[in-house]
Design a protein around this nucleic acid. Structure first.
Lengths: 247, 247
DNA sequence: AGAGGTAAAGTGGCATGACCATTGTCGGCG
DNA sequence: CGCCGACAATGGTCATGCCACTTTACCTCT
């Protein structure tokens, strides 16, 4: 009788709204939908799932109660920031954190992350790292001749590349912390990529990080990450000295 | 204009289903409805509240998601058992981040923190570390004979000791992150200090960490922190295996 | 040309009413 | 007396219609 519990596997188990909630959670958990993204409108989503709108709404209310989604009247249903992200952001909001502290923190987070990603990174997540790298490269090469680069976009892609690595490390708390760190860093200072020579240097450093992570070399990954962070730190500080002249 | 925020007291705030959920929680919280009791049938309850059944159902689904009620098809809606509520909460927390991730994160944060505190810790903050250590010791020794220890308080003091060290490291971002991590750790699992022998072992480890930090020995501080975290991790995992027996 | 307001489209919020599925009970039948 | 079947109670699902809030785009006035 030991196995009989699961012998007659139920056609489906649970109510429709439970199934829907689980399904949506699955999508969110698989990173196909990220915090801040909007879900399809209730009417469309219900149709896609082959259910009625009331059932879908019950599922959404349940997800909302557990903090997974954020429902805004008139605008849509959005994937919510995880509780850890929220509380960390709130805790740091009032606090003044210096650039030195932020870059030190990058070291604390990204060095182990690079090593773990190299050691245990799942194929799917490593592929995401590779994709982020290529997107960044493409954007950097795009208008280099005409100087028509979209700096804002470059900054986002740069951040995304580093975030993908941290996500590949397989520690959700670490990834969320890194996310908040990047937010603050981006808000506090613009990108340093437009400093003379910075873009090119950064390109090579990124390549080394990517190569080390993909080849599974933990030590090289740590070293490459450290080199990059120190280089970025130096650029940030020198930019700070020449501040005010730039936008 | 300081009070104007609440001057125009809102007619009602929030959606109907939220209001209903709050209302039901109120009733449950006031002991007018005890665990195991049945709520009125949906149709009646909706009529009593002056709302529609779908709205009521959305509220019930939200309460069910948070473990407050237990809905049984065909028989009724019942106030959930507190025990059930707690195990559900544990499951939800586990869904968020696993214990492994949390302890890995402790390593990421506390090792550099211990080293930095040893290297650069300001006297004032190091004194706070010392004070936290002594408070913890005193509390641990207090009722050891009568076994009248206040475990909750011990857990807080333990967390405070580690937090003081991270604060002495001089990085506010790091300190905030550690704070959030401790909150989650405390909410997800109680203390492991009451496991046989754990209190004594922890005592020695704390002493070594303190000594290393105060003497400015970075390497020893890192090593002592690592030893302690691994030891705590092992205790947490063994507690997990013997779960259910405890409150 | 810019700033302001206003209308329309998109989207969630709520209500009504009907019917289905499961559970529990009660009464009839063997 | 016990078993079984029907029925009543109750949650589960659906379809439909309309209301309320947000956002956007366009239009008007300055």
């Amino acid at each position: 009788m030991s196995d009989d519990d699961q012998l007659w596997t139920p056609l489906r188990q649970g109510t429709v709204s439970d199934l829907i909630a689980r399904r949506i959670l699955e999508v969110i958990g698989s990173d196909r939908l990220r915090p801040g993204d909007r879900l399809p409108p209730e009417r469309e989503l219900a149709a896609m799932l082959g259910t009625s709108r009331p059932s879908l709404r019950e599922a959404l209310q349940a997800l909302k109660a557990r903090g997974w989604v954020d429902i805004r009247h008139g605008s849509g249903v959005f994937v919510a920031d995880p509780a850890t992200t929220r509380s960390l952001r709130d805790a740091l909001l009032a606090e003044e954190v210096s650039l030195r502290e932020l870059f030190d923190m990058r070291e604390v987070l990204e060095l182990p992350a690079a090593a773990w990603a190299a050691k245990n990174g799942e194929d799917r997540k490593l592929a995401a790292v590779q994709a982020a790298y290529e997107a960044l490269m493409e954007a950097a090469n795009a208008g280099s001749a005409a100087d028509g680069l979209d700096w804002r976009r470059l900054q986002d892609l740069d951040a995304a590349f580093h975030l993908r690595i941290v996500e590949a490390a397989g520690n959700r708390f670490l990834a969320r912390t890194q996310g908040v760190l990047q937010e603050i860093l981006a808000a506090g200072m613009g990108t340093t990529l437009r400093l003379p020579g910075r873009l090119e240097k950064s390109r090579g450093e990124h390549a080394r990080i990517l190569a080390a992570v993909m080849s599974g070399n933990q030590v090289a990954a740590r070293r490459a990450a450290l080199t990059h962070i120190n280089s970025a730190r130096k650029a940030a500080l020198s930019r700070l000295r020449g501040q005010g002249s730039r936008d």
